[in-house]
Simulated scan of single mutants.
Amino acid sequence: MKSLKKYSIPYTGLALGKHNFEYAVDDAFFSEFEYSLVKTADLKCEVELDKQETMLILNFHIAGTIGATCDRCLSQYPQVIDVEEQQIAKFTDEELGDDEDIITLGKNEHEIALAGLIYEYVTVAVPFVTVCDDEGNTSYCDKDMLDKLNNLSASNEQNENPDPRWDALKKLNK
C-alpha cells in the first residue's frame, strides 16, 4: 500500500483557492487492491482541489481505457472509461454521522488520500455487461467464437419444438 501514498494531497501548505493535480492510474495501482475487477488500465486522473476555510471540494475527471473481457466472444479488449465525480471533505473533529457523501478530516490531519476514491470511481464505471464496440469488426474480437455462438443459437431455434400448452394461451390473446 506504500505505492498508493503518491495518490495523496498534502493540503495544509496550500493557499485558499483552486489547485490542480494529475495522476497516472495503471496496472500497478489496481494490483494493490485485492479482488479488483480491473487488472489492466491506462487512465489519467485529474483532480481539481478547491480549498476553502472549512472544507475541500475535490472534482475528479478520470479518462482512459481499462482491460475488459467481452461477454460474447471472451476476448480481451480496451474499454473506454470517462468519469466525472465530486467529493467534499469537511474540517471537523466531530463525526458528521452516516453521510457517505462527505469525508470528515480532523484538525490534526494534513493530507487527504485519494487512492480509495479513484479505485471506487473506476470500479463503479465498469459496465455491468461488457461487449466489444463493433462486434466482429475489430482486431481484438474473436470471430471464431462469434461464429460458433451464432451457429449454436441458429441450431437451437430450428430444433425447438413449441410446447402445445403455449398454443392454448396464444389463442386467449386474440
Rank of each mutant, 00 (worst) to 15 (best):
T54F: 11
D98L: 09
I66L: 06
T65K: 10
D27N: 11
A41F: 07
T138G: 07
L146C: 06
L169H: 06
V80M: 04
E95Q: 05
V129N: 08
Q86K: 11
A63S: 07
L172N: 03
I103K: 11
E94L: 15
G116Q: 09
L43K: 02
P10T: 08
N150Q: 12
E160F: 15
E135V: 15
E100G: 06
V129D: 14
E109M: 13
D50H: 04
N59F: 00
H19R: 04
I81K: 05
D42I: 05
A115V: 03
V38N: 10
S155E: 15
V131M: 12
E46C: 06
G116E: 06
T40V: 15
F29N: 03
E46L: 14
D142H: 08
L96W: 03
I9C: 07
D101G: 09
K6D: 15
P162T: 09
A113L: 09
T65N: 14
L114R: 04
K2L: 14
I112G: 02
M145E: 08
E95F: 09
I57K: 02
G17Y: 13
N173Q: 12
G116C: 01
E94T: 14
K90E: 07
W166L: 11
F33C: 03
F30H: 06
V124C: 06
Q87A: 06
D99T: 04
C132N: 10
L49V: 14
P164N: 06
I62H: 04
T65E: 15
S139I: 11
V131I: 13
D98N: 13
T12G: 02
I66C: 10
T12I: 12
A63W: 05
T130F: 01
P10S: 15
K171C: 02
E32C: 02
D134P: 04
S153I: 11
D167P: 05
S36E: 05
V124K: 00
D50F: 01
Q79V: 14
D27Y: 09
Q158V: 12
M145Y: 13
L169A: 01
V83G: 05
E160A: 10
K174A: 05
D163W: 10
A28L: 08
G97N: 03
F91Q: 00
P162V: 13
V124T: 12
A154R: 13
Q158M: 05
F91G: 13
L43T: 02
L149Q: 02
K18N: 12
K148L: 09
N59G: 01
Y11V: 04
E22A: 02
R72W: 01
Y23M: 00
A125W: 00
L105K: 00
M145K: 08
Y119I: 00
Y23H: 02
E48R: 15
C45S: 15
V38E: 10
Y7S: 03
G136H: 03
Y35I: 01
L105R: 03
D71E: 11
T130D: 00
L4F: 12
P164Y: 12
F29G: 00
Y23S: 01
T65W: 00
C70T: 04
V83Q: 09
S139P: 08
F21H: 02
E95P: 04
N59S: 15
G17R: 01
V80A: 14
T65H: 06
L43H: 04
L169E: 06
E32Q: 14
H19D: 01
